[in-house]
Write a protein that binds this DNA or RNA. Structure first.
Lengths: 200, 200
DNA sequence: ACCTGAACACCGTTCAAGT
DNA sequence: ACCTGAACACCGTTCAAGT
């Protein structure tokens, strides 16, 4: 996972000043939610998260009106890192082979989507649902994927019938599978197989 | 989906005689569960299923002590059909090309696993968990897949590093994706891509 | 400006009482 | 032999009352 500084975070920036206690509560909620989501997936109990963060359930809802809003806040930095990686890949000169570029991108997004069980589902769903808090992030991930897919097509590196949405769907499936494969060697092999099928 | 008669159902047969009302309740519960699982996935509310079947919640639990037991009963016939397909493919003479045979099997299992959202997860999990009510079925599906994988290896039709567990995992991922792809043409293309990656 | 926690609706699961 | 539904524990979500 790249730790390059996000090129241009480009989200609506969050309100600048909060009371100190509010800021602390928010941070605690995020930390506890990350723990819970990693251990139990994105459907983890919100009440337990609030309890674990030492606040009342109403405080959780005050900060994050929906489960997706909480998830979205949690993913913000990681999405920024992915956007930066996308920019980097697209700007690279001389460009590496188009197939490698595309699969490097797909691999990075797949690893991201495997971070919490349930996340792959959320990303694939939010990609199609314009109303989702995660839609903007998915659209931007998808845009980078589209550009890399177009390059791969131009180089004749992938099957001509593959669409950018296919690529997004495959990455989601890869995320789902990656999240459920404990053996790292096997996970690696499975991703390779998944992506190899894109070849003409 | 093949409608060949199951070769040898081989499950422990369910108790022969039930009171007429019990038999009717069981059938109603299964029908209602199928409806609910198809519409809301395998996590659908059991209380609603009982209500929809016109029985009290205790009756549902009396017939099916766990959610998995209910799911397992629901899948029994479809699993028998798949076992029969496996036997058929393995017995075919002259055998069709090993790769086609394997992917025909994978496709059939993937379609099956896409029947309910949440089922792919259940199958992959039960494959590893010997205590699951679904383990026996998964093991038998996996055995057929193993035999077809071995044939494909013997013919040099797939990458040498692929294991039977890899095949099961890929089928699960295919199921997951298939269940979330409404466009049939696209679903077809995605399965083709997923399976094409097995080639050497 | 933010936090608390009671209140409501809903569900999973068990089990004593019925027929 | 089977069914019922109350009982308990738990969770999501809202909102009036507090500081």
């Amino acid at each position: 996972m790249s730790d390059t500084a996000p090129a241009q975070p480009s989200h609506a920036p969050r309100p600048r000043r909060q009371r100190a206690d509010a800021q602390r509560n928010r941070a605690r909620l995020l930390a506890e939610a990350d723990r819970a989501f990693r251990e139990q997936g994105t459907e983890a109990s919100l009440e337990k998260i609030a309890r674990g963060a030492g606040v009342a359930i109403g405080t959780l809802y005050a900060h994050f009106p929906t489960r997706r809003a909480l998830l979205s806040a949690l993913l913000r930095d990681r999405h920024d890192a992915l956007f930066a990686l996308g920019d980097e890949l697209l700007a690279a000169a001389p460009p590496p082979p188009a197939f490698d570029q595309l699969t490097r991108w797909m691999r990075a997004v797949a690893e991201h989507g495997a971070g919490y069980s349930g996340l792959a589902e959320e990303l694939l769903g939010s990609h199609e649902d314009k109303g989702s808090e995660l839609h903007a992030a998915c659209a931007r991930l998808s845009a980078a994927g589209s550009a890399l897919t177009a390059r791969a097509h131009a180089a004749g590196a992938i099957r001509p019938d593959i669409t950018p949405d296919d690529v997004f769907a495959l990455v989601s499936a890869a995320s789902w599978l990656r999240a459920r494969t404990r053996d790292e060697t096997r996970a690696e092999r499975l991703l390779t197989v998944l992506f190899a099928g894109l070849r003409p």
